[in-house]
Simulated assay, not measured.
Amino acid sequence: MTDATTVEGAEGKTYNGLPGAFLYALRTSESWLFKGYVVLALLLTLAIGFVFVSGLLSILAATSTVRGGTFTFSRSFFLFVGLLVVAPLLAPVLLVARRHRRSVSTVAYDRGMALSALGFVATLYVGLVVSVPPALQESTSSGVIAALYDLPQIAGLVPPLVGVAVMYAVHRVLR
């Protein structure tokens, strides 16, 4: 018997929620590349979660005496940005776990999702480099980094958005 939070897998094993989906995807996928991505996604999600929780605590401490208004919005927006960064890291794991649960996943799908997800991780890095404030930029001999520094900071949103679009396209094409 199954309920809304427990789902029977193809091997008779179940998973409950996100942590179980990670283990289930790791266990059922035949792609070593995807298994490596599951481990990387878990580590990155924990690290990014730690950074965002630390940042939120700093924001709360700095604005604890101020009442509502803009500061309340900035706290909420900070959490929203954290979710926007972490959700695309988790999506490939959840998609592959769901497809394996339904016994419709293939090694090509798992591998494609892993490659597109790794591409998203690379675009996150590029977006971070672009969005570094000028006061924190270090001098570099790399022409690529210098060109990224020269872009407007708002352009740092473009690479991760392209990474998400590619991940979605790979999902649609390989399913």
Rank of each mutant, 00 (worst) to 15 (best):
I145D: 02
G69D: 11
L43W: 08
L95T: 09
E11F: 10
S103P: 02
V126N: 02
T28K: 10
L46R: 06
V53P: 00
L40G: 07
N16F: 13
F50I: 11
V144M: 05
F80D: 05
L26C: 06
F120P: 01
G119H: 04
H171T: 13
A4G: 03
A4I: 12
S76W: 12
V104W: 00
T140S: 07
A47W: 10
A155C: 06
R111C: 07
A97F: 04
G55P: 00
I154Y: 11
L26G: 11
G17F: 08
Y37I: 03
T65V: 10
V85C: 01
Q153I: 10
V39W: 05
A147Y: 01
A169R: 08
V164M: 06
S54Y: 05
V107T: 15
F22W: 06
V7H: 15
V164D: 04
F80L: 14
V86W: 05
P133W: 09
G69H: 08
A87N: 07
S116Y: 03
A114G: 06
T72A: 15
W32P: 01
F50N: 12
M167W: 05
L115E: 11
L83T: 11
S142P: 07
T2M: 13
G55A: 01
L118W: 00
L89I: 12
Y168I: 15
V85L: 11
A4N: 11
L148K: 03
L94G: 11
G17R: 08
Y125K: 07
V144R: 00
M167A: 15
V144I: 13
Y149A: 03
F80N: 03
R98K: 12
R172S: 11
V86D: 06
L46E: 07
L161T: 09
T45W: 06
F52I: 06
R98A: 13
A61S: 15
T45C: 09
F73V: 13
